[in-house]
Write a protein that binds this DNA or RNA. Structure first.
Lengths: 143, 143
DNA sequence: TATTGTTATACTCTATAACTATA
DNA sequence: TATAGTTATAGAGTATAACAATA
């Protein structure tokens, strides 16, 4: 029980599913801490990155792509709007397009910097001989 | 936006960190559904698998190995005890050892069946040429 | 009829602070 | 002094049901 990463005594330590959960938790904790510096959550950043360079997506569409429930998009977008990062533009009397504001564009540059650094850091931890196999394996799990 | 897995239009779809999160969420949703059949949560099952064949670990020790906060172990173990799956044995006047009850041993066999099937199913989805690289890559992220 | 945006709600997971009793 | 077990609490993510207005 003196092992710092607590894996040595863990019979689950080599199960792919269990490792997948632990690795994702560790990496998301890392990313969340990096984004907290600019007062964003992971889901906030994912929305900003998704709507970068386009202002035609509705709340429901963004939710479908990012797998966020329609109902849960409401507080998320309200938060981003309160922070002045996004703007809503009526498409018709029912739907609204979500686009980055000027401040949102500026914030996006920082978000890209943070996420690029994070993704590099993540890949760098994977030994070179395994690295190229990682993304294809994960994509296969989502297919 | 008609793509069923909603990845085609997603500029994040090839970022390792983003994929890691999505893949873990998808796999854990799958595992949770399989375990729900026997009224267990993922963390419940991980505790049962961890203490299988030993009855010397305390609540705090289990938590350290599985990365579950001491405070969050309380309702978890209470639930397992209420279900009759574990027993507490005093080690001294402060600590208790957690062990499987007879019913817990029986339940463990089912848990093993469920998790083995799940892990096989997960690995089977990964193309053969990437499969052997998956666990080492995940372990590197936890090191 | 189906969809959008929304409200309300609830459950799970996770995290922290604090307390007591004991080692 | 440090640790075990516990209580209380809060934040975040996620899920469902339902509603009004509009397509």
């Amino acid at each position: 029980m003196t092992d710092p990463n607590a894996l040595a005594d863990d019979p689950l330590a080599r199960l792919p599913g269990y490792l997948l959960r632990r690795a994702a938790n560790a990496m998301m904790t890392d990313l969340a801490a990096r984004l907290a510096v600019i007062d964003l959550r992971i889901s906030d950043a994912s929305v900003l990155l998704l709507i970068a360079g386009r202002s035609d997506m509705t709340s429901s569409e963004i939710g479908r792509v990012l797998e966020i429930q329609r109902a849960n998009m409401v507080p998320l977008l309200n938060r981003l709007e309160s922070a002045g990062l996004i703007e809503r533009r009526p498409l018709d009397r029912k739907s609204q397009a979500i686009g980055l504001s000027a401040a949102g564009e500026q914030c996006l540059a920082v978000v890209r910097n943070v996420t690029d650094t994070f993704e590099e850091h993540l890949l760098a931890r994977i030994p070179a001989q395994h690295r190229a196999h990682f993304v294809p394996a994960l994509m296969a799990l989502l297919a």
